[in-house]
């Protein structure tokens, strides 16, 4: 059940330059699935639209959600100023989430690039599979790396080569000669395109989480669509709604 309500910030810290790590106490944690997201609203009334932010982690009691986000503009800048005890308006939980059950007993890549790393954490926590976690960063600020270490073997790529493989997550796969039966990924569009091609070449399934500018977050406004290879069940054209039909899509279903 989707709901908008005012929740409470439990803690916040800067995880890396411009990257913030916030825990929010909310009942929405009970229903949160890995790969789902919440919409966060600003207090600044001149900035109307909610900011979609992926769920990074759910605490053990399912009473709190963790979001890890980058300051991208005035809205996220406002969120970064929130401290423990502050109120925060959120809508959730939104989207479909990763189909983690498909991975049971398989050898998988869990891949995150940049601000696409956060949703990989809860997925890694919940997934029952042989997990190879491959994460890409700009530099040596490896936010969430230590959390990920608890749930599988982590391979790092950095653009500046300061840690792990120099380059991106695809370079890390090649450098480490890694293999998988299935891929789950979130990250920038060039990375997702590379994964889509890689999965097609290898003949394996890949589930990728997409992002797009959103207005409603609930499937009504048709702002956040992605081209699909087949006619979509809802739109009856080649467009699926990222907020409701996604954000996770099977790579071969979307034309990116």
């Amino acid at each position: 059940m989707k709901e908008k309500h005012t929740a409470r910030v439990l803690s916040q810290k800067e995880a890396a330059p411009m990257i913030f790590d916030m825990w929010i106490e909310t009942e929405l944690a009970k229903q949160a699935l890995p790969g789902q997201f919440i919409c966060v609203y600003t207090k600044d009334k001149s900035a109307l639209l909610p900011r979609p932010i992926s769920i990074c982690e759910v605490n053990e009691d399912k009473t709190a959600l963790r979001i890890v986000y980058r300051i991208a503009g005035q809205g996220t800048k406002e969120f970064s100023s929130y401290q423990a005890g502050d109120s925060i308006a959120i809508l959730g939980t939104l989207g479909n989430g990763f189909p983690k059950d498909k991975a049971v007993g398989k050898k998988v890549f869990l891949m995150g690039g940049g601000i696409g790393v956060p949703p990989i954490l809860q997925l890694a926590k919940e997934m029952d599979a042989e997990k190879q976690i491959i994460v890409g960063y700009r530099d040596g600020n490896l936010f969430l790396k230590e959390d990920l270490d608890k749930y599988g073997r982590v391979y790092v790529a950095t653009e500046d080569g300061s840690v792990g493989t120099k380059g991106n997550v695809m370079d890390a796969i090649a450098a480490e000669a890694l293999e998988a039966d299935m891929i789950f990924a979130c990250g920038p569009m060039p990375m997702l395109r590379a994964i889509k091609r890689y999965a097609e070449d290898k003949g394996i399934d890949a589930y990728i989480s997409l992002e797009e500018h959103m207005a409603c977050g609930v499937g009504a406004c048709l702002g956040c669509v992605v081209k699909t290879s087949e006619v979509d069940h809802h739109s009856h054209v080649h467009n699926a709604r990222i907020c409701t039909d996604g954000p996770v899509f099977e790579a071969k279903e979307v034309d990116i």
Binding site: L49, E212, H213, M214, A215, C221, L222, G223, C224, V225, V226, S235, H236, V237, H238, N239
Partner: peptide, 11 residues
């Protein structure tokens, strides 16, 4: 059916 415009569609 109309496919609509390319994205980004909202700002």
């Amino acid at each position: 059916p109309w496919p609509g415009n390319p994205t980004p569609r909202v700002a």
